[in-house]
């Protein structure tokens, strides 16, 4: 049986979703919740596959958008948890009236719209302004890195209005439903897997469309694309905005899964880790990105428990190994096996 590359990708995504759903029957609630946490980074990693793997745009600031989604969801949950009072950290800081920009987050529909809209518009305008000036490659990465750093500094400084270094925590209901008990965690997990499955299908559709080819073309020969009549700054900014939305979705799920969002989850280190997820899974593979996020997430949990002081060295070594020896990550490794078998075991 010989499958095309595209069919193999769809099959892999289907299998991955099936395995993730099967976890509900095999894993205990604690571990399942952990997997849910890793999956929220899977959303971010898919976005990185699209912008970096396909479009050649490396962002070291995806944590910004993860944070935007996470914080907006947490603001909604926190308002619900503390109603009719103000959120506790505001009370401690002596704030007497809710800041105006918190108001929209009383409403779930508005919160959900803003979680998608703000990162999309913000990311598009930012990226278009930069790409139009022909800033790209490592310079773009540095700008995003600086932004991620700025964002954490701003949040840490805003103790009274957004919770500062502690972040926003201590919320346990979602529309009155307890989100800490096992049954609702299960529901949340299944919902997240279904949304992730849909996102993976959409991302595959994108990479296999003409737009996907255009992104590859921009990555390899941007000038040629420009002189074929494309506004490449617009195309790149649009995909960057899409990746921002995916990151924000991941952030929102993260807040729901863990009951916590904090500046440390969205800063420079977190943002670089997100790139490692995509690199390990394979920067050209949508399901690979999700697998990378789960794998590194699991390793991180395991190693940081076992070797609390050294696990960052492990993470760094994995990244260097992948960059040096597996430029297309795990997905590239399996792809070579598949192609090798199709050629009757010939070496390639």
């Amino acid at each position: 049986m010989k499958l095309t590359r595209e069919a193999t990708e769809y099959l892999t995504v289907g299998l991955l979703a099936a395995v993730l759903l099967a976890f509900t029957m095999t894993l205990d609630p604690f571990r399942l919740n952990n997997v849910g946490k890793y999956l929220s980074f899977g959303f971010v990693a898919i976005g990185i596959v699209l912008t970096w793997g396909y479009g050649g745009v490396l962002s070291l600031g995806q944590g910004i958008f993860f944070g935007l989604g996470g914080y907006m969801m947490a603001m909604f949950l926190k308002l619900e948890a503390s109603a009719p009072e103000l959120p506790d950290f505001m009370v401690w800081s002596g704030i007497e009236a809710l800041p105006v920009w918190w108001e929209p987050f009383y409403s779930l529909p508005i919160t959900l719209v803003l979680i998608h809209l703000i990162p999309a518009v913000g990311a598009y305008l930012f990226a278009y302004a930069i790409f139009r000036k022909r800033v790209s490659g490592v310079y773009f990465a540095i700008v995003t890195l600086a932004l991620a750093m700025t964002m954490t500094v701003l949040i840490v400084g805003a103790q009274s209005t957004i919770g500062g270094a502690n972040g926003i925590t201590d919320f346990r209901t979602f529309l009155g439903m307890d989100i800490v008990d096992d049954a609702s965690k299960m529901v949340l997990y299944v919902l997240q897997v279904l949304v992730l499955f849909t996102v993976m299908l959409a991302a595959l559709k994108l990479t296999n469309s003409r737009l996907g080819k255009i992104l590859i073309a921009i990555r390899d020969k941007e000038d040629r694309v420009r002189f074929s009549g494309y506004n490449t700054a617009h195309v790149k900014a649009a995909v960057f905005a899409l990746a921002a939305v995916l990151s924000a979705m991941g952030g929102a799920f993260y807040s729901l899964q863990t009951g916590l969002i904090a500046p440390s989850l969205i800063g420079v280190v977190a943002s670089v880790e997100m790139v490692i997820y995509a690199a390990v899974g394979g920067r050209l593979s949508v399901p690979g990105a999700v697998v990378g996020a789960i794998l590194i997430g699991f390793l991180k949990s395991y190693l940081s428990e076992t070797f609390p002081e050294y696990w960052l060295y492990f993470l760094g070594s994995i990244f260097i190994f992948v960059v040096l020896f597996m430029p297309k990550g795990l997905a590239g490794f399996f792809d070579r096996l598949r192609v090798g078998r199709a050629l009757g075991g010939e070496a390639r």
Binding site: K205, S209, R210, I214, A217, V225, G229, N231
Partner: peptide, 16 residues
Amino acid sequence: EISMPDAQGVLDSLFF
């Protein structure tokens, strides 16, 4: 195909 002048917008090319 990419060099053809049609469907050069983001959505056009996605649903091309």
